[in-house]
Design a protein around this nucleic acid. Structure first.
Lengths: 159, 159
DNA sequence: TATTGTTATACTCTATAACTATA
DNA sequence: TATAGTTATAGAGTATAACAATA
């Protein structure tokens, strides 16, 4: 049994990530929405109507996965499928009126939460906090990209 | 299609949470480990050998879920089940030698990552960053607790 | 020949409910 | 009567592989 060390900044960041997830997962009860489905809605909200292939790339998941997510969102009335104007293989997914409305509401709730949480930080600490999380996010992105690169080239060597 | 607003501190925290998850999920290829299983290992590592019931409480998941996770970890040789000395209903789950070894390695990798990421932050910003994330984590915990409270009492009213 | 989306199949995480053995 | 763990069942998210229609 190992002694629990005092939490570091990183431990706190991990905890915050888990708390956010928990908050997300419990917030959608009865709406037919789930974290994965809401991610789809955010991508369309920000990127506009797009093919399922584009959704798969933007979300970093398989095409098969997108089929299932869009099926559920379509059945729930949040998105609609329409034929691509020129490519008859492709399907365009767009938000319905109800979907747009829901996203507007979620965006406003997100803004409220942002304001509430930032309000808990000492005003004098806010600028440094913003710089700090930016730096950490950037470094983490770089580490993951390097890791993916390493993984890819080692896969190529073995092929 | 909505204009993408500049990322706030909260957006960055969400992004960091997702990056950590991604990092976790890809780090276990070929080990038979998954994020959920590793969470079990961390709880035992910090809390010592315990019953599955205690694990379920510590993890915040159902007893059924623990059965499955422990099954997989046992099969992978990371943990062992043993009878409770006095309560013949209960099972004690403890780390095997291999499990301990794996956790020591993961703990060291976690420490390296912590040092690496913190190193990316300007030294003058570090104290404010630590205070800021502490404050945000505390506020978020309070919000979620209040939400759970509200949910519970409304469930009681309808019962 | 390559790409888009679907069907087929499988694995992980999660939950509730029913059941067994014990307390 | 209550608790610990399991079996039964189900739903969500994810993946790969095979396939049809189209480019």
């Amino acid at each position: 049994m190992t002694r629990m060390p005092p939490p570091t900044v990183l431990d706190r960041l991990l905890e915050i990530g888990e708390l956010f997830q928990h908050d997300m997962a419990t917030a959608f009860d009865g709406t037919g929405l789930t974290p994965a489905r809401v991610r789809v809605l955010w991508v369309i909200r920000h990127g506009g109507p797009m093919t399922q292939q584009a959704l798969a790339t933007a979300l970093g998941v398989s095409a098969r996965n997108v089929t299932g997510l869009v099926d559920a969102l379509e059945q729930g009335g949040h998105v609609a499928r329409s034929p691509h104007p020129t490519d008859r293989r492709a399907t365009i997914v767009s938000l319905t009126g109800a979907g747009e409305q829901r996203m507007t509401q979620m965006q406003s709730e997100h803004a409220d939460l942002t304001a509430d949480l930032l309000d808990a930080v000492e005003p004098a600490d806010r600028a440094a906090l913003a710089r700090g999380v930016d730096a950490i996010a950037e470094r983490l992105r770089a580490l993951i990209a390097a890791d993916a690169e390493r993984r890819t080239s080692s896969a190529e060597r073995s092929a």
